[in-house]
């Protein structure tokens, strides 16, 4: 089957992103990753939020729930709990996931639901035209932050390692081959996976440009043990002149789905409903 899947199968609507947007790199890497993994469009559901990243599933082909701003993870969790034979991926923006939906992020990590979260991290609110996001760097000026961003930049990698997230990685949209491999690893990992993808926003982020990232990112594969949590935390703290990309941390915590006895045998959506038990249940009330 897998050899038959081609780029054509994943061709969606023409993207409405700005020319040069980092999202194109993510889209290309993603298509190649799922094709190489032999995943067919109907075997996959993408849940996205609102933002430039939220449009992602429309530009490929797959089952899609493009929900509310910030609420990708609860929807993805509900889908997985109802059907754990479905591959469920969440696509969110940095504002979407770390701002509006920050609480859900923390709890999805805790649950270790087997959902893969891809964050299009352009360190800015793209769709709403350039406000600061939680990952914007301190001091960056925007129309809404005339004195520059005053809050400390959120570090999603360190946060995820601190929460013992099952898979923590960072990619760069301008490094397509490496990104594709990271996407495949995130999908193949059993457990909640966070892949934060640095991407330039050519229109609204004049600080973290393609060149800015290009000069700083480096691959961490050699000499880094992603199963060493303390080492991973150190790696996660790196940001500045050198920014690590690759798998920062992983563990094999049991996933939520396998810990729920009711769905251990078969996913909920495959279980038929048998009303004959009702007469017996009614006896409880006498």
């Amino acid at each position: 089957m897998s050899s038959m899947i081609t780029l054509k199968d994943y061709r969606g609507l023409p993207p409405a992103w700005c020319p040069g947007c980092g999202n194109f790199g993510i889209l290309a890497a993603f298509k190649n990753a799922v094709i190489e993994l032999g995943i067919e469009p109907h075997q996959l559901t993408i849940v996205s939020g609102i933002g430039q990243s939220g449009k992602f599933p429309h530009y490929i082909k797959c089952n899609t729930f493009n929900g509310l701003h910030g609420r990708t993870l609860p929807v993805a969790t509900g889908i997985r709990l109802a059907n754990h034979e479905m591959l469920v991926l969440a696509f969110a923006g940095d504002g979407d996931c770390y701002g509006e939906g920050g609480n859900h992020f923390m709890h999805a990590v805790r649950r270790n639901i087997n959902v893969k979260l891809f964050v299009h991290d352009n360190q800015i609110y793209g769709l709403t035209k350039g406000q600061a996001s939680p990952t914007s760097m301190e001091g960056v000026k925007t129309k809404n932050q005339p004195f520059g961003v005053l809050s400390e930049q959120l570090n999603p990698m360190a946060l995820a390692v601190a929460l013992d997230c099952s898979f923590v990685a960072r990619g760069f949209s301008g490094d397509s081959g490496h990104l594709k491999e990271l996407i495949k690893k995130a999908i193949d990992h059993r457990g909640f996976s966070l892949l934060d993808i640095l991407q330039p926003c050519v229109t609204f982020n004049k600080t973290n440009t393609f060149e800015w990232y290009k000069q700083r990112v480096y691959h961490i594969e050699t000499g880094h043990d992603p199963e060493d949590r303390v080492g991973a935390f150190k790696k996660a703290l790196e940001w500045g002149d050198r920014i690590p990309v690759g798998v920062i941390y992983k563990n094999d915590r049991p996933i939520l789905e396998e810990r729920i006895p009711v769905i251990r045998g078969q996913s909920l959506v495959r279980q038929s409903f048998d009303m004959s038990r009702l007469s017996n249940t009614l006896k409880d009330f006498y």
């Binding site: 559901t45 849940v47 729930f65 929900g67 509310l68 609420r71 993870l73 609860p74 929807v75 993805a76 969790t77 509900g78 889908i79 997985r80 709990l81 109802a82 059907n83 479905m86 609480n103 859900h104 709890h107 909920l268 959506v269």
Partner: peptide, 16 residues
């Protein structure tokens, strides 16, 4: 509760 309703909608979308 935001998560609660969104989870329920996810499960419903998935077919239950």
């Amino acid at each position: 509760e935001i998560a609660a309703i969104n989870m329920a909608l996810g499960a419903s979308f998935a077919g239950v």
